[in-house]
């Protein structure tokens, strides 16, 4: 092993690996954010009165739970542009091609899968809020929005926090798959560096350590947040 390879600057790969880590973080956060949005939407659909909404949500979670993320990434990556172009021609009558950057493609795929797991977590949290509280809120005349803001929202957020921590870990790990379509994050950078230096073990090990570091730090963040959110909760 040659530790000079890990230096910063032109000769070393240290700064490139760190840049890869920043890209991993960015795409993970973007995908996680999208996942939360989809998760909330999915929860509404799953708890909806209408059969068709529940069916839609079920199809969504079944696909994500049953089909490999790698396959979904390939599908959206290779087929996404074609599909969007068709929609564009159909809806807007345009003939232009639609250009999605790799970042957006990757974020969408991972966010899509993250959303299904988020939906399960958020739904569980919503159902865990005692029904009596909502009835009580209705009884004193709160509007649905106020109920959400004062009763359902804060408690759901607290109850969902541990599960959402797991979803974050999952999302972070799944972003490594975006490397196969060329986004230069930790994995892709490790591949480029190990091809160029002929030291694959060194660079994949560093890649692994970077993931380990991000996970450990975010673990700590989530357990702090959980403690903070549980401040007002009486423990038996």
């Amino acid at each position: 092993m040659n530790f000079g390879l890990l230096g910063f600057g032109i000769e070393g790969w240290g700064d490139e690996m760190l840049r890869g880590a920043v890209m991993t973080l960015l795409v993970s956060m973007a995908a996680y954010g999208l996942g939360i949005l989809l998760g909330i939407l999915g929860t509404f659909l799953k708890l909806s009165r209408f059969f068709i909404c529940r069916l839609l949500a079920d199809i969504y979670t079944t696909i994500v739970r049953g089909i490999p993320e790698l396959l979904i990434i390939y599908l959206v990556f290779f087929g996404g542009g074609i599909m969007l172009a068709r929609i564009n021609a159909l809806v807007f009558g345009g003939s232009g091609f639609i250009n999605l950057p790799v970042f957006v493609t990757g974020m969408t795929c991972i966010g899509f899968s993250s959303g299904a797991y988020s939906a399960e977590v958020i739904r569980g949290a919503v159902l865990a809020v005692p029904k009596g509280q909502i009835e009580a809120a209705k009884a004193i005349g709160m509007t649905p929005f106020t109920i959400f803001k004062r009763v359902l929202g804060p408690q759901t957020a607290r109850l969902a926090l541990p599960g959402m921590g797991n979803v974050w870990q999952l999302t972070l790990k799944h972003t490594s798959l975006i490397s196969v379509i060329g986004l230069v994050e930790i994995m892709r950078q490790s591949a480029v560096a190990s091809g160029s230096t002929r030291e694959p073990f060194t660079f994949y090990a560093i890649g692994g350590l970077l993931y380990l570091g991000i996970t450990s730090i975010s673990n700590r963040g989530f357990s702090r947040a959980e403690k903070w959110a549980a401040k007002g909760v009486r423990s038996e």
């Binding site: 390939y74 990556f77 290779f78 087929g79 996404g80 542009g81 074609i82 172009a85 232009g96 091609f97 639609i98 250009n99 999605l100 196969v180 379509i181 060329g182 230069v184």
Partner: peptide
């Protein structure tokens, strides 16, 4: 733009570049 080789033709058709 860099693009992984095995998707390079489908992505051209898809309009990525």
């Amino acid at each position: 733009v860099p693009q992984a080789w095995d998707g390079i033709i489908p992505s051209l058709q898809a309009g990525k570049y």
